[in-house]
């Protein structure tokens, strides 16, 4: 590329980045402003103050919400990774009749919009007495066709000879799964885990349906609650809440962007 082209590309990149990132920066800036400034519609705070954050933690049990979200996301991540890898292992390494049909059924579940099943699911969870519990928030999501698909792609790249060498040595399937397949696929497992954590952390509709108790409410619902309570008056506090919600996932994304991109593309395309 010539100098001119380079400069032009950089200019485009900078403009695009500024626009794309603006809402996030904006939220950060507002969260450090005092109430009056927000209402004047300022962009840059005259003085950076943490008052909104203190306020946010005092007005709503934000810490509890964050903790709940952390637990729920972690459990979902764990469940999805374990269930998906077990299923993917069977689909790759254990030959049995009807395996392909079963795999097709697994994949076709990706086409069922979860929202089309939410009413009976709500009834089921209610019947099981799982409303307002971590169980109700997490267990329905443990099975994951996309994760199974992604890991199946990964497991297929493991040389068949490793499995055969284990068979000759007399290693059981489960031991092969645990001490060869899982460690060898660490990268993919971490990628999938990140993806699961992100999606779980950002879940909105289901937690809205099955929690009405502050003790288990997740931070997304807490945010909605803040927003509808504080709406007209204290935007700074709400934005402080927003920042607290997005900080963990943004950090996770910044650290793992490259890996996530590679992992997801691999799953999506082959």
């Amino acid at each position: 590329m010539s100098w001119g082209q380079k400069l032009f590309t950089y200019a485009l990149l900078l403009i695009a980045a500024a626009i794309m990132f603006f809402p996030i920066i904006y939220a950060f800036l507002i969260s450090f402003m005092q109430g009056g400034e927000v209402l004047q519609g300022n962009l840059w705070p005259e003085e950076f103050t943490l008052a909104n954050y203190i306020n946010a933690f005092e007005k709503v049990p934000l810490l509890t919400y964050l903790f709940n979200s952390l637990i729920v996301s972690f459990l979902i991540m764990l469940g999805q990774v374990i269930f998906s890898s077990l299923a993917a292992f069977a689909f790759v390494f254990i030959p049995f009749k009807g395996r392909n049909v079963l795999f097709f059924i697994f994949i076709s579940t990706m086409m069922i919009p979860w929202e089309a099943t939410m009413v009976p699911n709500f009834q089921t969870v209610q019947m099981l007495g799982w409303l307002n519990s971590y169980t109700g928030l997490t267990v329905p999501f443990f099975a994951m066709a996309f994760g199974t698909f992604l890991l199946r792609q990964q497991f297929k790249t493991i040389p068949k000879e490793l499995y055969e060498a284990s068979q000759v040595a007399g290693i059981s399937n489960f031991r092969f799964f645990r001490s060869v397949v899982m460690p060898v696929s660490k990268t993919s497992l971490v990628t999938l885990g990140m993806y699961c954590f992100l999606t779980a952390w950002n879940m909105y509709l289901w937690p809205l349906l099955v929690t009405n108790d502050e003790q288990v409410r997740t931070v997304q619902i807490g945010l909605k609650q803040m927003q509808s309570q504080e709406i007209s008056t204290e935007w700074g506090v709400v934005m402080a809440g927003v920042v607290m919600v997005i900080l963990p996932t943004l950090l996770l994304l910044f650290l793992g962007q490259k890996r996530l991109q590679e992992g997801l593309t691999k799953g999506a395309l082959k």
Binding site: P159, E161, L162, E164, A165, Q167, V168, A169, G170
Partner: peptide, 14 residues
């Protein structure tokens, strides 16, 4: 395979 009392070396070494 493991009941056959043999060892095996693979092309890609495994």
């Amino acid at each position: 395979p493991n009941e056959r009392d043999l060892s095996m070396v693979f092309q890609n070494y495994a």
